[in-house]
Write a protein that binds this DNA or RNA. Structure first.
Lengths: 148, 148
DNA sequence: ATGGGTGCAAAGGTTTTGCACTCCG
DNA sequence: CGGAGTGCAAAACCTTTGCACCCAT
């Protein structure tokens, strides 16, 4: 189970799964598809653990990121967003579709980048360990609205 | 010539190529391959025009971005970076190789993404207008150093 | 005189840090 | 006890805004 895995990862680092930490993890699991910001996570977590402070949320997100439990990314809109890592390998192949009209974030899976990464290594000597691919455009819903 | 094109773009927007603005553009042209941050640009521009203020640099970068003269991107390291647009279409196909050891930013050209973008449109209805692809890893120089 | 442009200082928003305190092993 | 974890407030950080002033047309 996902939470057991999280607990194990924490224990390996001699960190505990405190109530606050658990609340943050619960929020991340419950919103696994939603790309929450730190503020969003703070607000949600407050429902489960009202006394929690924003700094604690940030410190826990930092720790969870360090332990590779969550993934953090930036859209250049001023704040980071966080997503729990589910399948590991899967992670590497899932990209984001960011709608410039409504701001929604969809996903798309593809392993086509493997080809590029091999070419980069062969042609430039740069060893790729990770990537970040985001597509910008108009989502299906917004395109529908424009038509009507 | 590049600067004439810039001047034209500005005039179309009824904006002037002021000395400050020109200094910023000169810096961007001289460092076309360097992915400078706003602060970097400010420091460089000060050499050409010592009285310039940081706010002016930001305002000009904002304007230049609006007019599609420069491209702005975020590496999630806390600050934006800027790059002058040279070949337009070329732009779409050039990606960044970010070294996690030394922080250097290389480039790699590839149009392989066209295939993915067509599949996205076909499979999800999301219309892609732009993308951002960054690779993280270890650059050739740093790999060389580790060996020795 | 009118609108664009500027410098400075102040404000803005997100994230980090310092510090005293608590809790569990 | 000792290290990990916490809440609060203050600080840090990059970026934007307000405002008075300047310059060219």
């Amino acid at each position: 189970m996902l939470k057991e895995w999280v607990r194990n990862q924490l224990e390996k680092d001699s960190s505990r799964l405190t109530p606050q930490r658990e609340a943050v993890v619960d929020v991340l699991i419950a919103n696994a598809d939603d790309h929450l910001s730190a503020e969003d996570i703070f607000i949600h977590t407050k429902k489960l653990y009202p006394e929690i402070g924003l700094a604690t949320v940030y410190r826990n997100l930092e720790l969870l990121e360090k332990l590779n439990i969550i993934h953090r990314f930036d859209y250049g809109d001023g704040h980071s967003r966080y997503e729990i890592r589910l399948g590991d390998d899967d992670e590497h192949y899932h990209h984001h579709l960011i709608c410039q009209k409504c701001g929604s974030i969809g996903e798309f899976k593809s392993d086509l980048l493997d080809t590029i990464e091999k070419r980069i290594a062969a042609e430039t000597g740069f060893e790729v360990t990770d990537h970040c691919l985001r597509f910008f455009g108009i989502c299906a819903q917004c395109r529908e609205k424009v038509k009507s």
